[in-house]
Design a protein around this nucleic acid. Structure first.
Lengths: 209, 209
DNA sequence: CATTTCAGTGAACACTCGTACACCCACCAG
DNA sequence: CTGGTGGGTGTACGAGTGTTCACTGAAATG
């Protein structure tokens, strides 16, 4: 069916991808825990038992989806970083823009994280929490490099990062609930920028005790 | 089994409560969508078909649980309000204390909201979103009554409220992930107070454009 | 007292579920 | 060319699912 020979390993990888994609699609309006191996298999076009050649269980599949989705998350930070403006306003505008773009482009991944972060099986929740904690730590490190953060203690920087990450998660969730490219999306982006600015006004006036 | 006569209506209400409680308990580590009518019935001690005398479906049960849980949510705002201190610091300390107490006392309800807010069936998600929006609006009204908010536009007050609610939801989620009365819980409460203070420093310096 | 109402019962239905097992046969290494 | 590896198949199983229907018997009604 596929043009060239398709070596064994290639074909296996292809099927694995199909399973991941199918699961993400089926998960779109249902939590992972309510997903059945047979549904996934049917969607992929393989027989139920074939599933086991790739994953030991649905939960295993979930962990693989987490890893994939966390890559999309990290890409946000990466893209934010590759703009070197030292100006708060510019950084904020850029960051929100990047977030909107990534949510648009990897809707499934962000929706998966948002859902399974609270509703997933324990190992899945843990993996997502770890990913977000890493994100938070890196954000704190970035903030420490910014001008004007010298009076901040390391602990306070972490607490601020936690707050910013929470706000970003909330923004991503709101973005997921509206149509891409809709006026509502623009509105959410605008409000997110305002919120970050409010936060930064507070941050620049803050003095750690 | 129960001491007095137990009028028909009373007994029905009792069973209804048992169903709600059983569902909340079974939901503790699994989303509503992965809950089966038969599991609930077994836990309650009635036959599966008996379930239909009280709810038309699991989703219906979910909506009832949302209503109940939102009462617990509203109680937070009510208890915060019944302290008249006009001082930011005192208001913040009090608010976080109230939140911690309520999450401790109604763990199941808060966990249910946190989980189904993103993972529930569409009508359930919608009901929770409406409840949180109401909470946000009332918070904005409260903030408008506080001294020093005169330079704030109504829109900016709403945006600030949204940010505070997001932070509070995130705090509640963190509280749910640790033991009640543990050092970790104290730590989270401390960080939440700091975050609100950071926010308020920003808020008092803000000028709406 | 006769009648109606209705929460809870119990059997039966037509599914879907995860998983075990034996089986193919195209690929790749020897 | 040959033998083994391993994706993918097909069948079968026991367990669990939502929902139907006719039912019982005690409380409520009049």
């Amino acid at each position: 069916m596929t043009e060239p020979a398709a070596s064994r390993a290639e074909q296996k990888e292809r099927t694995r991808r199909a399973i991941l994609d199918a699961a993400l699609e089926l998960c779109d309006d249902t939590p992972l825990a309510a997903l059945s191996l047979r549904q996934v298999a049917k969607q992929v076009g393989i027989v139920p038992t074939g599933f086991y050649r790739h994953f030991a269980s649905i939960e295993d599949l979930g962990l693989a989806l987490v890893q994939e989705s966390l890559v999309s998350l990290r890409a946000v930070l990466r893209d934010v970083r590759q703009g070197g403006e030292p100006e708060y306003r510019a950084i904020i505008d850029r960051s929100v823009g990047v977030l909107v773009d990534h949510v648009r482009g990897r809707r499934g991944h962000f929706a998966f994280i948002a859902r399974e972060r609270t509703a997933g099986p324990e190992p899945v929740r843990e993996a997502i929490a770890d990913g977000l904690a890493l994100f938070e730590a890196e954000l704190a490190a970035d903030l420490a490099r910014l001008p004007g953060t010298s009076p901040w203690s390391a602990a306070d920087l972490r607490i601020l990062s936690n707050l910013i990450v929470s706000a970003m998660v909330a923004t991503a969730e709101r973005l997921l609930s509206v149509e891409p490219d809709s006026p509502a999306e623009t509105q959410i982006a605008h409000e997110a920028r305002t919120q970050l600015r409010m936060l930064m006004v507070g941050a620049t006036r803050w003095r750690s005790t």
